[in-house]
Design a protein around this nucleic acid. Structure first.
Length: 851
RNA sequence: GCCGGGGUGGUGGAAUCUGGUAGACACACGGGACUUAAAAUCCCGAGGUUUAGUGAUAAGCCGUGCCGGUUCGAGUCCGGCCCCCGGUACCA
């Protein structure tokens, strides 16, 4: 495995780049010496965090990409002198473990532990910058104990509560899903169609923080992708409007509607309510006898319709007259009440005022059922009439047919009408949110048990904190059928009530796994802390996370829940921050042949195979080089080969520089200036330092790596015999070149360390460098060398490129103009014309504008 | 529909923040050197097109989805449109 330098017949040989030999050695050393351990100190801290993985069994390329990015940032920041924390852990509760248990008869805990072990090994084989002493595994009782404790605190503050409600239910996973876990009417995990069930469940009152979560986005929007901020904003879905009461004819109660357009109140020609609305239930006794049969039939029919389809607006608008009438709160006119399938019970009040002239849905509905359209807003300079109206007019305008509000601008009218309603207690301004409370009960085994007890005499009682953790029983029947597995474990269910000591039952649901991931980043500050969720002073030192990296798929789930829980912890005095993640980088997917990598498509690339073939450095470097971080990365096997070849080139490049520059003598800057070879090499080195630094800072890792390639291309091109140089060649290198090359060999290993740490450390060692590369400071750009020297100045005539001038920097406009006119090609274009104007950008270009 | 992001060679992408040589760097391709041969390695070439020249080459024109504008100068800024990707949705 040795090749001999060709031209010089040198006795010296340079061993080939052999990643598989050098990588394990360094990985062992890093682990043994705890090279990347984070210890609190006086330096500026930097907390770099990747979203922790679910222990599915094996790393996939998405993980590799994620960790390569985080690793690069962590390493770079350490070189900059920051105190870097880069921890790793596992989001270890969840369904796949339980499914594996059902299918293969392995205990979820065993399955999970095996996977954690295997995946940890894979990560170590990648050579990640990680403080392994801070590992957090969420299925450990020492972790979930504090989650149970948090739940009790939230219960005591009214932030955790139980209610019966319609919830999303996945028939395949046999469990409830949160709103955020339903995508297009399908389960986020298994893609089964979700159905609705009426169940009693635990909820966390995230809506109490709705406004704050919305406002808080302003403080982080600079550090987060705009896309994610927008998604959260839309998800919270704040809308301002009014609640308005329509009194039911012959009754004292009223139907309350929510509207964002109180200015169109006089345009109401009907009311529509959701089929599930309680007023339609028989108990309410509102629907007249003669209408009862048809109304019930309509309700039944709508209920049968696929709920998700109804939400997705795929079903034609349908409705039925309920026989109920209400009275308009201001005009006192009689208004019919319809039940309509497009009105949703879970938003607003489940009842809507129908204004066909100014709302498109109402317009469609009115057209179908031949209901009148009343125009109450006229646009400026036009006059709408109900007969000619082809669609609802939803823009602004002036109020008409609206009693005392006629002539008002509609924006002003909004406020005036709500005021008028408030006075007679028939309405008030109101804000609604799309965001709903977070349902966290899961009828599954492999999760954190909810530390609550149901007592017949005392009601719902929290477990005594002394008894935490409430351990998940080791044995439970796992069949995937028949509700919570824990309900079948007698020893778990039967407890004494902490209040009255009477016989009571434990809650048998477990918490949504998103609970664990909502605070793990605090736990890393003190992973083994036993007196609470985390040590406040340590968490205060490290958090917020300075740079968070992960997939965009968590834009509203994990990233919103974490912001919520952080605020809960803040309000109970456990931490002083509101926002857990100061900066967020969402990396794109790894795709192959235009499709997402997946087993079913058979286009999965296994990181282990690649590491076994090319080594970790190649895999890491490729995943950074092939595309900008935030874009999708199209996997390309040839590209990997290319990166491997580059690393081989890097390897030989550094060793050749080394063998050619073993004896260094001191040379002044001036001597370098006067030596063209040395000087241009120096300039290229400075450009590379600049390019790599800026690339990493802007997360343009692809251009950062190309800056290193350019340096190698340039220096190796300085001599035609470069690739066969040896120590013999020292004699024919100028002292200045000798020095600059020597500088390059020392600095290039630092520049490439964030991308390819193994090869970098190994090269440093082979060059007998004292310290490990990871402890070296980042080289600073010496602008002197970049600014020095000649520049290529562009000459334009009328904005078109006509010539180039190689000139020294800092020439005056007149000097350049004279040179430009002398240029033969430029001369051809200006001949016979006079120059009307000259634009000169120093050291860049001159543009001659002809008259 | 609404909200984001994007559209640049055969391909991934650079230059876009801050208007100033479009195509860095790489992949793929083609040619050459080395080799008995191959691999590896090294070197060279390359957006399209036209003109002149045997030729190396020189020069012109066109070119960053489309149309228009601002500017001495637009891939970059502004207005309008088309297409692709992602998110979201009877949200009252």
């Amino acid at each position: 495995m040795y090749y001999t330098c060709q031209l010089h017949m040198s006795r010296r040989t340079i061993p080939h780049y052999e990643p598989l030999k050098i990588e394990p050695k360094w990985q062992k050393k890093w682990l043994k010496e705890k090279t990347y351990k984070a210890i609190e100190n006086d330096k500026e801290k930097s907390y770099v965090l990747d979203m922790f993985p679910y222990p599915s069994g094996r790393l996939h390329m998405g993980h590799v990409r994620n960790y390569s990015i985080g690793d690069c940032i962590a390493r770079y920041r350490r070189h900059l002198g920051k105190n870097v924390l880069r921890p790793m852990g596992f989001d270890a509760f969840g369904m796949p473990a339980e499914n594996a248990a059902i299918q293969n008869n392995v205990h979820p805990s065993q399955w999970t532990k095996q996977n954690i072990k295997a995946m940890t090994k894979q990560m170590q084989r990648l050579g990640l910058f990680v403080d392994w002493d801070r590992m957090v595994v969420t299925c450990e009782p020492s972790y979930y104990r504090w989650e149970q404790w948090l739940f009790i605190q939230m219960f005591n503050k009214g932030l955790a509560y139980r209610k019966k409600s319609l919830v999303h239910w996945c028939p395949k996973c046999q469990t409830v899903l949160a709103n955020e876990q339903v995508e297009n009417g399908k389960c986020w995990r298994c893609a089964s169609s979700v159905i609705q069930k009426d169940l009693e469940q635990w909820f966390l009152r995230i809506t109490r923080y709705a406004d704050e979560l919305l406002e808080g986005l302003k403080t982080i929007e600079k550090g987060w992708p705009e896309k994610v901020v927008t998604m959260q904003r839309n998800w919270i879905g704040r809308s301002e409007g009014a609640m308005i009461d329509f009194t039911i004819e012959g009754r004292s109660e009223s139907i309350r509607v929510f509207t964002t357009r109180p200015d169109t109140l006089f345009g109401v020609t009907f009311i529509s309510i959701a089929p599930e609305h309680p007023l339609l239930a028989s108990e309410a006794g509102l629907v007249p006898q003669e209408q009862k049969a048809v109304v019930d039939a309509f309700i039944q029919k709508t209920k049968k319709e696929d709920f998700s389809q109804r939400k997705l607006n795929l079903i034609e608008k349908e409705g039925i007259f309920t026989g109920i009438y209400v009275s308009h709160p201001l005009s006192k006119q009689r208004v019919p009440v319809y039940s309509a399938n497009f009105v949703l019970m879970d938003y607003g009040t489940g009842a809507v005022m129908g204004v066909p002239a100014h709302d498109q849905r109402d317009f469609d509905f009115a057209r179908k059922y031949d209901l009148p359209k009343k125009i109450v807003i006229q646009p400026l300079g036009r006059s709408l009439d109900p007969e000619g109206l082809q669609e609802a007019y939803t823009e602004s305008g002036t109020l008409v047919s609206s009693d005392v509000f006629n002539g008002l601008d509609n924006l002003l009218a909004k406020k005036m009408i709500v005021d008028a309603l408030s006075k007679i207690k028939m309405g008030e301004s109101a804000v609604t949110y799309r965001l709903k409370d977070w349902g966290i009960s899961r009828q599954r085994y492999w999760g954190t048990p909810i530390p609550m007890i149901h007592c017949e005499s005392c009601g719902i009682v929290p477990e005594d904190e002394k008894n935490l953790p409430i351990l998940l029983p080791k044995k439970a029947p796992l069949t995937g059928q028949g509700g919570s597995p824990l309900s079948q474990v007698n020893s778990f269910v039967k407890v004494k009530c902490p209040k009255c000591e009477g016989a009571a039952k434990r809650d048998t649901d477990t918490m949504d796994t998103f609970m664990e991931s909502s605070w793990y980043f605090f736990r890393y500050a003190s992973p083994n802390y036993e007196k609470g969720m985390f040590d406040k002073s340590l968490a205060t030192y490290w958090t917020p996370v300075d740079q968070y990296i992960g997939g965009v798929e968590h834009a509203v789930l994990h990233l919103l829940y974490s912001r919520f829980i952080t605020r809960v912890l803040r309000d109970s005095g456990h931490i002083n921050i509101s926002e857990p993640f100061a900066k967020l980088l969402t990396q794109g997917m790894v795709i192959k042949d235009g499709e997402k990598m997946s087993k079913s498509k058979g286009n999965v690339v296994d990181p282990d195979d690649l590491i076994a073939k090319y080594g970790a450095d190649t895999v890491r470097a490729f995943s950074l080089f092939a595309a900008p971080a935030e874009k999708d990365l199209d996997w390309n096997d040839r590209g990997v080969e290319g990166l491997y070849r580059f690393l081989d080139r890097l390897w030989r490049f550094v060793l050749i520089l080394h063998s050619a520059t073993e004896n260094e003598n001191s040379v002044s800057d001036q001597e370098i200036q006067q030596d063209p070879v040395a000087k241009s090499a120096m300039t290229e080195l400075q450009k590379a330092i600049k390019g790599v630094s800026e690339g990493i800072e802007r997360f343009h890792f692809n251009t950062a790596i190309s800056a290193i390639m350019e340096l190698i291309n340039h220096v190796s091109g300085q001599r035609s015999d470069f690739w066969s140089l040896s120590e013999k060649s020292q004699d024919d290198l100028s002292p200045a070149t000798h020095l600059v090359w020597s500088k390059i060999k020392r600095q290039i290993v630092i520049l490439c360390e964030p991308f390819v740490p193994h090869i970098s450390e190994e090269l440093a060692k082979q060059m007998n460098m004292q310290d490990m590369v990871s402890h070296q400071p980042w080289p600073l750009v010496d602008n002197l060398w970049i600014q020095e020297g000649k520049v290529t100045l562009v000459v334009q005539v009328n904005g078109k490129l006509r010539g180039k001038l190689d000139v020294p920097r800092g020439l005056s406009k007149d000097e350049v103009l004279t040179l430009a006119k002398e240029n033969e090609n430029v001369g051809r274009f200006i001949e016979g014309h006079s120059i009307a104007k000259t634009i000169y950008v120093p050291d860049k270009l001159i543009n001659l504008v002809l008259s």
